[in-house]
Design a binder for these strands. Structure first.
Lengths: 199, 199, 199, 199
DNA sequence: AATGAATGAGCTTTCATTCAT
DNA sequence: GATGAATGAAAGCTCATTCAT
């Protein structure tokens, strides 16, 4: 059972690495098997189909993100500190594991990602909404739906990562500017008088 | 020439619709041809290969977005009004043309999207950076790189659209909340004293 | 009629050049048309089909060879001189027009070349057999079937050409040896006591 | 390993038979597979591509010829006997395996046959050149390049086979004449006073 | 006669999946 | 459980040929 879990994880990690470089459709099952050092047929001992493997990959990556981020959060700290820590940990994780980011982006924009899936229960999303819920309850964040706050913040983190990925080489000078992004986002979501709204 | 352009556009639009529903790899060339009412071989009169068609699709969609958005911008208005108009027009365009959004998301997260492509010249990106440049020059926006501002704002718009796409049915109650998102983003990017930074 | 003939010849020559480099199946009709400066459809004004064009090419090349070689033969000379002249003119022609040789070789070894075709009437072959017939009648050649003599001699010429084509660069030293080949062939076919036959 | 070799050989033999009748381009991979009793995809387990299969076919046929002919040569016999045996064995092999001859002719006159390939190492060609080298060293053959002798002799054998293939039906009377061809060739290559050369 | 866009049959090739060993 | 050769549906693409202009 333990060994089996190890082999399954090995396959998932192999798939992740290959998908990072070649995309879903540039990554045949046989390539995943070879990279993991097993025979092609063996993949079907652990997954019902390639599609099934990709769906499990989604679950796997999300749970890895959840474990990594939630374990580093200290609820006893002031919320603003927790927010900056979340930002730092998320960007750190994605930069350390580009395969996570590449996979998630591809998955989300693929036909695998259905409305049902998005609305299904999900520990990571629940944790994240609870996180923002706490910010609201502590009167630190604007009293909006935590779901919306979560999406806005995660979206901004992805944008920053994407930027670093594509322009990294050219833009070391701007690194300090990039450090301002979480502050901008924080300024957007923190409790405050809303600016002159636009009718 | 005119007819040819029409047929090429017809093929592009057909591809866009089908890719929205089935993804790049769920959309064979034959399906695009059938949907456009031509023979499979005809596609190759207008595109060198399927990959070439997808790259042209990217150019096509970007130029459509550019035309739509830039034509609706009035530089004589105060910048904040222009910002809200941009937001409204972008979300309106993406909601009216879901195929545009689905395609762009898939393209960006696919292996088609290379670093070189991201760094190449692009009217739409240039227009967008000039837009934010003007906000900075008018002392309305924070003095950051317009590139970064553009990415943050576009990323947030995409996040909002994604949210609407997946949760729309359940969440009519939140619509007013969604209307607050551009205000949050505006609060994040407008010139102001930065909040207590986090060391 | 004259202009038409010119265009047909132009197409034939274009086809020949392209087939030399790319082979029958590497030479689409559209490529021939483009090379000749006409539209693809125009080819079908002059030929019923691509296969038909290839068959006409065979006739065309053979008649060109026939015209070239027969016009340079002087029946008043001693036969041995005529033989060496034939050899020289054939090798000269093939080296000057590699497209002729490449085409003929390909045609002969292709499914186009049927037994019927080989046995059909053919001015070039008839001229050639008459040539060797005269050698026999003049008691200079062995009294064999002129058909067989023709095939032996032509086959040897082809062999020599092939050798020059593939080993030319390396083998300038051997050129004088190559000059001995027609003498060897002459020694083989000239009237003489046959060597000790092998039972 | 043994089974795999068997199946590969089965595919090669199937391809050979079909190419004999239909030519390279009249023989789809699917036809080869069907003839061998396997699925189309299976061909790609043994060959990287159709082109690759054709190149392997060339190697295969040449090695078969080499094995057949070299095994039947007895170097202890007088050279003239060995020469006539070579002739007889070659014509016998080609007549017994017309697919060998058809394939080799097509291959040689196709774009597959490059100058590099012709100049590459090749056991069969080396054996053949050594064969003629021995004739020279035994003072039986003219002191020419063995390469040239090999080409001349092989070319003549091919010519004879071609003749038999196309005129066989009509020409039983000539069979005795055909038997004279190797004697003519022998007379051409054997050591002797060259005939009156032609300036 | 000439054009060249359109056609679609037919090809090569890939790859998810199966199953005898 | 593991293997990997075999499968065959399905894809991308080519190109001989047609036909409205």
């Amino acid at each position: 059972m333990d060994i089996n879990q190890d082999k399954k994880t090995l396959l998932l990690e192999s798939a992740l690495e290959l998908i990072r470089d070649h995309g879903f459709h540039g990554t045949p099952v046989s390539m995943v098997a070879k990279h993991a050092g097993v025979a092609a047929g063996t993949v079907y001992t652990y997954f019902q189909s390639k599609d099934d493997m990709i769906k499990e990959l989604y679950t796997y990556v999300k749970s890895q993100i959840y474990l990594e981020i939630s374990s580093k959060d200290d609820p006893r700290l002031p919320f603003q500190s927790r927010f900056y820590a979340l930002w730092k940990n998320m960007t750190g994780l994605y930069l350390a594991k580009p395969s996570f980011q590449r996979f998630m982006e591809q998955f989300i924009s693929s036909p695998f990602n259905t409305a049902e899936l998005q609305q299904s229960v999900d520990v990571w999303r629940e944790w994240l909404e609870l996180f923002f819920q706490q910010g609201i309850e502590q009167n630190v964040l604007r009293p909006l739906s935590p779901k919306i706050l979560a999406i806005m913040v995660l979206g901004s983190i992805i944008s920053q990562i994407r930027y670093l990925t594509y322009f990294n080489s050219k833009t070391q000078l701007m690194e300090e500017e990039l450090g301002l992004i979480p502050q901008m986002v924080w300024d957007g979501i923190k409790r405050q008088e809303l600016s002159d709204s636009y009718p």
